[in-house]
């Protein structure tokens, strides 16, 4: 599905990613953990095509495509989805209108007929139930005035509608209370499929109690320094990131 090789990237003149290697197979769920500033969000941003980063070295192959050569919209149309850490408020753009435009852009790319409003609304209602989304949210401007939890749920709701092949969840748990976290995790789990891969980027192990990963990687100072199974997350929870960074346990979460 995805193969990242020796990926180096800069932001604002600083090298953030310093040689990331990662392979994600079809249907696998990978967690990328790491302390603040380790490059987690940069990695997510580079994969989605955010313009703030400059890739200086390395390659990313996604379903046989040179991912870094594609525009953000082309990546999305090829089935890549980024759930934003900070979903953007877009005043004046109606949530339903936006999502319909996005879905139809994807369908058009796949050679499928565009959905009309009726079919689209039927699909959307179905997906809203899973995420406990208030239907009124559809008629509000994208993310405007949404609570933190609503924004994150809206991201997963979009994922449910757009049905990506590879979803990258960038700190989808941050700022969520335990109830909201459970709803989001339940939504994500309902979207797990043998043909869908998911990368969960998170600072805390807590989310991984609910979205159980197949693999856990630790990103530190722009490199993946450790990989393992789900038990690695528990170890991190117990010992903090310090032991990985410094070689000795400090227990703090920075």
């Amino acid at each position: 599905m995805l193969e990242i090789r020796k990926l180096h990237a800069r932001a604002g003149g600083n090298e953030i990613l310093k040689g990331v290697d990662l392979a994600v197979g079809t249907g696998e769920v990978h967690a990328i953990m790491g302390p603040n500033g380790s490059g987690k969000s940069t990695l997510a941003g580079v994969l989605a095509g955010r313009g703030d980063y400059e890739v200086t070295e390395g390659s990313v192959t996604y379903q046989g495509l040179d991912l870094l050569g594609l525009d953000p919209e082309e990546r999305a149309r090829e089935g890549l989805f980024l759930a934003f850490q900070y979903p953007v408020e877009i005043p004046g753009v109606n949530n339903a209108y936006f999502l319909k435009a996005a879905l139809n852009a994807l369908r058009k790319h796949r050679g499928e007929p565009e959905l009309d409003t009726m079919d689209f609304m039927a699909l959307v209602r179905d997906r809203m139930k899973v995420l406990d989304i208030d239907p009124s949210l559809l008629n509000r401007p994208v993310n405007e005035g949404f609570s933190g939890g609503e924004k994150k749920r809206n991201e997963i709701f979009q994922m449910a509608v757009l049905e990506p092949k590879l979803a990258i969840l960038d700190e989808t748990d941050s700022g969520l209370d335990i109830d909201a976290l459970k709803i989001v995790a339940h939504g994500v789990n309902s979207l797990r499929r043998p043909d869908r891969s998911i990368i969960v980027v998170t600072h805390y192990q807590r989310l991984l109690n609910y979205i159980v990963p197949d693999f856990v990687h630790v990103l530190s100072d722009g490199r993946i320094v450790r990989s393992g199974g789900k038990e690695l997350a528990l170890e991190l929870e117990e010992r903090g990131y310090g032991w990985i960074e410094d070689g000795e346990p400090v227990g703090g979460r920075a």
């Binding site: 989605a48 095509g49 955010r50 313009g51 525009d71 953000p72 919209e73 990546r75 999305a76 149309r77 980024l82 934003f84 979903p87 953007v88 408020e89 877009i90 005043p91 004046g92 753009v93 936006f98 999502l99 435009a101 996005a102 879905l103 852009a105 994807l106 790319h109 401007p141 994208v142 979009q158 757009l162």
Partner: peptide, 29 residues
């Protein structure tokens, strides 16, 4: 807003269409 533009593009909406949506939204107020 480059953030808004990226957000729309990251959902598959093309650059020109994304711009058009944002300009219409601006005037829509």
């Amino acid at each position: 807003s480059s953030d808004a533009l990226f957000y729309l593009r990251a959902r598959g909406i093309g650059l020109a269409e994304a711009r058009r949506m944002l300009v219409r939204a601006f005037a829509g107020e």
